[in-house]
């Protein structure tokens, strides 16, 4: 009788562990999907960053006419643009700054063209940031300066 009960218990335990393993595999696969979704979210933030960067480089609202390859910003356009204008074009949750090395004062209509720093939208501390060199056409003097464009997207 006792041997019979022991066999029974052995059988039940074996079945229990087999079912447990199946459940663990199911949980593992589901967990894998969730991790995949998290990494896709990160990927989307990176894509958004690159999209804003490319949009800046090629937008007719910012670039000088006649430069098909883009990245020739006009200082007058940068000075009159506001964060809300660009958010209407590129969406939200990003910030950008363009600066010519040596300039720290933010450009306004009053100090234009004797300035070389433009800021768009509130900077977020936790952002993915891209930085590229750009050309800045000085509308009043006709010169071209080299500047840096920094674009950040909130994580």
């Amino acid at each position: 009788m006792r041997i019979g009960q022991a066999h029974l218990m052995e059988y039940v335990l074996l079945t229990f562990f087999a079912v447990l393993i199946l459940l663990l595999i199911a949980f593992f696969l589901t967990g894998w999907q969730i991790t995949g979704a998290e990494s896709q979210k990160q990927e989307l933030v990176l894509q958004k960053s690159l999209f804003v960067l490319k949009s800046f480089s090629n937008s007719p609202y910012i670039n000088r006419r006649g430069f098909k390859e883009g990245s020739m910003f006009e200082d007058s356009k940068l000075t009159v643009l506001k964060c809300e204008d660009l958010q209407n074009l590129f969406g939200k949750s990003w910030w950008a700054e363009i600066y010519i090395p040596g300039y720290t004062e933010i450009c306004t209509e009053e100090n234009y063209p004797n300035c070389g720093y433009w800021k768009f939208c509130e900077k977020e501390s936790e952002s993915i940031i891209y930085e590229i060199p750009v050309n800045i056409y000085r509308k009043v003097s006709g010169n071209v300066d080299i500047g840096i464009l920094r674009v950040g997207v909130k994580i």
Binding site: Y61, S76, K77, T79, V80, L81, D85, N88, L89, E109, Y112, P113, K139, V140
Partner: peptide, 16 residues
Amino acid sequence: LAIDLKIRESQMLALK
């Protein structure tokens, strides 16, 4: 949006 920006830009450049 383009009209608004161009007017602002032109007003600024007219003075400079």
